[in-house]
Amino acid sequence: MRRIGVIAINTVRECVRDKIFLNLLIFGALMIGVSILIGDLSIGQKGKFIKDIGLGAISIIGAITAILLSTGLIRREIDRKTIYSVIYRPMPRWNFLLGRYLGICLTIGLNVLIMSLIFFALLSIGRYGIQAGMFKAILMTYMELILIASIGLLLSLLLSSTPSVIFTASIYVAGHMTAELKGMASAAQSGIHRFFLGAIYYIFPNLEALNLRAEAAYGMTIDHLYLLKACLYALAYTVVVLTIAMWWFERGELG
């Protein structure tokens, strides 16, 4: 357990010292800031508009961070052979992978936390009000991000850098379109299409179930039971994907 923690902390250190992390944070802060400026364009809906854009920015920047970190870190270690000096230590290989994953989750959490603080600070300055639903929406965004990070990690073990980024990003997009996928599956004429679309619907994560941003922006009540179920769904999906990744990493060759 201690070794997993050491690897996780080192991963956070590595990520926050990476310029990409800082650049994404600045970009996210700018997006949230700009939402205040262009909020004037929306007639009578400025508060909702700002909240919508702000929560959206946290989600999008968080997703880019999650995808880049999860697909890049391990792959880069393998390609640059820095993994050798760590992996020979007397520990099962999955310790290394889990440590890396937890480090990525902590970094994503830091990213979400900093952007949320900027968002809430701007809302307070502009007196737009902060509702409990926003915290819930941000929590679910975080669950969504750690789920997508587990998929990125798995794909980075199976594929090279660029394909793993493309596939993880595609799954992220498809995960937000699961309702459409289900509709397309039931409307499909051919059996093969129906089977294929149905399979994607059941295999891909239903990220839209974790998207509570619109409800939060419009001040709607978010049911606690729904929140709990959605959290459990995200955690279960993540555990399954991570288990596959650890199994694969444990048996694969590094060199």
């Binding site: 080192n10 010292r17 990476d18 052979k81 050798y84 020979y88 007397p90």
Partner: peptide, 16 residues
């Protein structure tokens, strides 16, 4: 590997 120390051929380590 508990009592082993290893130096890889190309010493690439964590730059950061």
């Amino acid at each position: 590997r508990e009592r082993v120390g290893f130096l890889p051929e190309q010493p690439y380590f964590h730059d950061h």
